[in-house]
Design a binder for these strands. Structure first.
Lengths: 196, 196
DNA sequence: CGTTTTACAATGCATCTGCATGGTAACAAA
DNA sequence: TTTGTTACCATGCAGATGCATTGTAAAACG
């Protein structure tokens, strides 16, 4: 054998190149050759780690979800403050405000477009939606138990409602149809209502 | 000259083929040849009416917005009932419930993905967002004037908030991450809050 | 009637795409 | 040291794609 290589680490490295290309120039820019060039390897290397292009893109998108989850978890670990502040902070991390999260939003747009025609991508999209909603729900349930929310609140619906508001803010922000201040106003109004 | 032809009508016919292809099989399916076949003409005809593929896709997307506007206007013209019912009805038309509106949502996903890399598409996306928001705002303002809403309500923010909730319901519905009932529950909760 | 313009059709072409193939060099195991 | 496996690289290929070119028939126009 040649030098022992961490297979998964190499795949993640290539996935990074894929994500960079898609985020910067769209799904169609992620050709095998472009990915190879971006990653600084030959096309053969890319083919060595991914049997097909679809597998490559899918892996990259999954990898992106892990990255996003990690980013959110980081915020998650910060001192909580009030429940309201906590939600505000985490959600702000999900909205396309920083260049990093804007790249994430561009990737998500690509994912959705492909999910329309590709079942594997669709289930990934569903997973992302359910993941985010479940995340909200769990936190809301915590707060409710602590008495920070009405005991008879429909946590499930509230989580979905929050998800809708948040994800509905992404496109306007991404394309500049509204300012960050306007978006945060909408979010704050939603949180105000939730937390009374 | 050959038989006089309604230039714009021919373009709209081709745009229909483009939209059908994109809605069914994604952006990448809208090749010149596929569009020609779908429309039942030769490739030369397509080239005759659109100088480039980009121009064709852009025109088709614009055409789609006109179609959507027309569909909403139709609902709009129906007997209004209460303001709340009116909003509920119009919004339901925008959500991907019928196969027709699902196709619209798929097209919108494609539009957004392309808007990330194509400025012309981006401004179309912005136009769509602002159009919808302005539409809500105007209606909300009407209702406010009639006393159906608090006089001091921030109509602008309320419109944006409504837009966010609605557009945030699209993806979950489209990919089956939530049921229509759940979506309508979220919408109803939002409307309940707005109209008190 | 003839000319010219319009509305297509047919085809060719350079380019790009994903993928298959055939190498080769490094290195672990025998 | 031999052998076999792994990790690539270089190249080739068939198909697709956008666009340019050329051809042609019909009809409006002088």
């Amino acid at each position: 054998m040649p030098k022992q290589v961490d297979h998964e680490e190499r795949r993640r490295h290539l996935a990074g190149a894929v994500l960079h290309l898609i985020g910067a120039r769209g799904l169609e820019a992620a050709t095998l050759r472009a990915v190879a060039a971006e990653a600084g390897v030959s096309m053969g290397a890319v083919q060595h780690y991914f049997k097909t292009k679809d597998e490559m893109v899918l892996f990259a998108m999954e990898h992106n979800q892990h990255l996003l989850a990690a980013r959110v978890r980081k915020r998650f670990a910060e001192p909580p403050g009030s429940a309201r502040e906590w939600f505000r902070r985490v959600i702000q991390e999900m909205l396309p405000t920083s260049e990093e999260s804007r790249a994430g939003a561009r990737l998500y747009a690509a994912l959705q477009a492909r999910a329309v025609v590709d079942p594997a991508m669709a289930s990934l999209a569903v997973h992302a939606i359910e993941g985010a909603t479940a995340f909200y729900r769990a936190r809301l349930e915590d707060v409710r138990q602590e008495g920070g929310l009405p005991a008879d609140l429909d946590v499930d619906r509230e989580a979905r409602s929050l998800y809708s508001t948040v994800s509905g803010l992404v496109a306007p922000l991404l394309f500049g149809a509204c300012t960050e201040e306007e978006a945060m106003e909408v979010l704050d109004a939603h949180l105000d209502r939730m937390f009374g």
